[in-house]
């Protein structure tokens, strides 16, 4: 299997006036073509920093990332992201159809755009909602639109940032199965960032377990479950139960001292994430002013 994504010795430190914060430290892993890899880690461990460096939105201070052999410097060509917060990531002034077409305007003509969007919406089961506005849809359906938008873009790598964390449990199961179906049919390479242990095992071909902040890879586990999975039987299977236990142990879940530590670190990380976003906003404002 060839490596689609190659992350080597990635480290990132945020600099601010009143100090520095090391978010990730010596992260190394690869994602093969057609693989679905889940990155799971405690909240605030630097997952979102990792995701933003892969997108090219944040320039890492150390190490490098290559996407099918090309070193990432700036936002790479064929990469799509599904963000957790669909309500902010979708454009409220565009219909569902136009939201999906939005990233295609650069490269495709009108007819092709329309066809590509229709196809993607069909795939996520939203063929009937094309003319609606996002706010007229339920949260789960909105996230389907985001997924359709990412798929229509036909990316080499699909990144998902806690994609199902903001929907209810039932919808979450549906969307997980949708993702597995799409991945099987389209052979898409996917990297899912999540804090949900069950989800990581259920979805992944591999699960990467990250440490507390600064994040580094603690374990790279292969998920030996069949390609076609089922919310009930798969979750009951011994392989699933064993694996989720292993991941949970690696993450120190449920131990009071560890929990306290995690909570404290999450608070620190949240503060830094805020500073980071402020810095990001500033950088963007400049960015768009100057070019």
């Amino acid at each position: 299997m060839t490596a689609m994504l190659d992350v080597a010795g990635l480290g990132h430190t945020y600099q601010a006036k009143d100090g520095a914060h090391r978010a990730i430290d010596g992260l190394t892993f690869t994602v093969g073509a057609g693989e679905l890899v889940c990155v799971v880690g405690p909240s605030g461990c630097g997952k979102s920093t990792l995701l933003r460096t892969i997108c090219g939105l944040v320039k890492p201070t150390e190490g490098g990332i290559s996407l099918h052999g090309n070193k990432i410097d700036g936002v790479p060509e064929d990469l799509a992201v599904v963000f957790q917060d669909y309500s902010r990531s979708l454009f409220p002034w565009l219909s569902v159809q136009r939201n999906v077409e939005f990233p295609l305007r650069r490269s495709l003509g009108r007819k092709q755009r329309r066809a590509r969007a229709a196809e993607a919406l069909e795939l996520v089961g939203l063929a009937k909602a094309v003319g609606k506005y996002p706010w007229q849809l339920s949260g789960g359906m909105q996230q389907r639109v985001s997924i359709a938008r990412a798929l229509a873009y036909q990316p080499a790598l699909l990144l998902m940032d806690e994609p199902f964390a903001s929907v209810d449990a039932q919808t979450r199961f549906e969307l997980e199965d949708l993702l597995l179906k799409v991945k099987r049919e389209q052979n898409t390479t996917v990297l899912v960032v999540t804090h949900d242990i069950d989800e990581s095992v259920y979805l992944g071909d591999r699960v990467l377990v990250l440490s507390n902040s600064p994040a580094s890879v603690v374990a790279d586990l292969r998920v030996d479950l069949p390609g076609v999975r089922d919310q009930i039987t798969t979750r009951e299977s011994d392989a699933f139960v064993t694996l989720r236990g292993e991941v949970a142990r690696l993450l120190n879940v449920g131990r009071p001292t560890a929990q306290r530590k995690v909570a404290a670190e999450a608070a620190v990380a949240a503060k830094w994430a805020e500073a980071e976003r402020a810095a990001l906003r500033e950088a963007h404002a400049e960015d768009h002013a100057t070019n």
Partner: peptide
């Protein structure tokens, strides 16, 4: 910000 990031990621 997220709309900026979405636009940036889709170039």
């Amino acid at each position: 910000t997220l709309k900026y990031e979405t636009s940036a990621v889709f170039r």
